[in-house]
Design a protein around this nucleic acid. Structure first.
Length: 107
DNA sequence: CGATTGACCGAAG
DNA sequence: CCTTCGGCCAATC
């Protein structure tokens, strides 16, 4: 178990169920710092050196694929989400709220 | 060690 | 509607 803000981000992201997505703010709030959403993004950036980190399931509060540019290629993130049954249009998730998974709301 | 940046969010002008 | 600022944490320069 990781006690650092950084490590906790990975644990939460890895807990995201299949076909679900969450936001940076939701994770940050879950960790206790709703304003540290930027740090969550940093964790995703470092997640490249880790495994089983579905960073593509993490989007901004707008449901927009802001971090798609950090993935390989230009639309890999979108393809991954579509592969999970989601629908992407204009780099944003359709029915985003419907597929939104909040760590706090989850038991 | 000091300053800047980064896949964010929200408010204010 | 668009731009700017403040805030949090960690990594990089």
């Amino acid at each position: 178990m990781s006690t650092n803000f950084f490590g906790q981000v990975y644990e939460v992201v890895k807990k995201i169920p299949f076909g679900k997505v969450t936001t940076y703010g939701a994770i940050a709030t879950y960790l206790g710092s709703g304003a540290s959403a930027r740090t969550v993004g940093w964790a995703m950036n470092n997640s490249h050196q880790y495994s089983n980190i579905p960073a593509h399931r993490v989007v901004n509060r707008n449901g927009l694929l802001t971090g798609k540019h950090h993935f390989s290629g230009t639309n890999l993130m979108q393809q991954l989400l579509e592969s999970e049954g989601l629908k992407i249009e204009d780099d944003k998730i359709i029915n985003f709220e419907k597929h939104l998974w909040d760590p706090n709301k989850t038991t």
